[in-house]
Design a protein around this nucleic acid. Sequence first.
DNA 1: CGGCGGCTTGAGAAAGATCAAACGCTGTGG
DNA 2: CCACAGCGTTTGATCTTTCTCAAGCCGCCG
Lengths: 219, 219
Amino acid sequence: MEFVAEFKTGEIVVEAGGSILVHGSHTAHLFTMLDGWAFRYKTLDDGRRQVLNYLLPGDLVGLQGNVLGEMDHSIEALTDTTMCMFERRRLDELFVKHPQLAYDITWLAAQEERFLDEHLLSIGRRSAIERTAYLIAFLYFRLKEINGEKKENGRIPITQQLIADTLGLSIVHTNKTIRKLINRKLIKWRDRGCDVLDAEGLTDLAKWEYEPPVDRPFL
Amino acid sequence: MEFVAEFKTGEIVVEAGGSILVHGSHTAHLFTMLDGWAFRYKTLDDGRRQVLNYLLPGDLVGLQGNVLGEMDHSIEALTDTTMCMFERRRLDELFVKHPQLAYDITWLAAQEERFLDEHLLSIGRRSAIERTAYLIAFLYFRLKEINGEKKENGRIPITQQLIADTLGLSIVHTNKTIRKLINRKLIKWRDRGCDVLDAEGLTDLAKWEYEPPVDRPFL
DNA sequence: CGGCGGCTTGAGAAAGATCAAACGCTGTGG
DNA sequence: CCACAGCGTTTGATCTTTCTCAAGCCGCCG
């Protein structure tokens, strides 16, 4: 724990809409989410954008930079966000001195892989309404896992444009699809975000099941 | 190295079409690809299948089992395949005694994440012909990286059904799209596989660029 | 008050899915 | 040696999902 404190080089606060990392940058830092929501995305030159995943407290960011030397995707804050910074250079030291923490990092990477696998299945093979139900259920359960039941079901702070860019759909079609979910009383939409009314209804519709991880590390 | 040899519990040979891991199993092993091609995939109950990624020599398999306790996807051999088995139980030991190897595992996980990110961008935002060009170019460069230029461009051993299931397309449309690539003299198709004739043409069409990793570990 | 971002809706267009049929191998059993 | 079955591929016709274009609404903020 002392090492973690020492390894940490600072905290950073980014307000909603701000960039946390941009494609092509060579950051000397890794980040851990402490509070707030963010999302990772890639874009094509002509502007088409794909959201890859969402980041919530406890998630680790920036490991891919170790493979390539630079980031190959960007990260933007969805709400006001605070993150913890670590020096990438000292990652070896962490692996040598703190195998438990090293294992946690690997565990987090494996979890991210699981999420991406499921996203891929959604975008590739689920219909528009199934995908949408899946995404909202997915975020709902992630949020619940982090809130630990305490807060009653938190609002998911997302725009329809973002959902469209996550699911590979146009915004128009996304809107019509969301409306169907609302009509079926599965969710409620307000402001820029949504509340889940019937989580089971969503997972059934998506033909998906939430699988809680077994041994969450304590990074 | 001695430890690697000791850590290794054996090799396993799977013939083309055979299952390596199935969804829901609790394997006590991790695997490394030594030779051959395999692919990871998930399915929905009604049979829709999504290929997640392809496995080539050097790739690590089964880490996700650590998050969940069981595998949440399946793996099938595409060609005759030989893999190296490790005991999952002893992963902690590896992290304690061999930080360099532990780092390599993490590196491989980060690389897989990069691949999945790009696949997601393809399926979500690229058109059918862009996707197809991307996938073939992607496999071409991965193969080339492994063959180290020596063998002239190896055949990519894949069926059109598999390409369809990787790209989220129907087999009919996949066939028509591949035919366009053939007509443009970008690839040649024969038997069950394809040869790349013009790698740059493919990457241009896909609006993608191959980025070689910087410091490959030696696992 | 005007402008902007996010949401909503309708209409027509296009990409891709589904259905149906057939071809060319290859392996197998008579 | 031939008939036949099965798999992977090919092609045409039609149908559906999703996209694009266009316009309008609403609430918020300067």
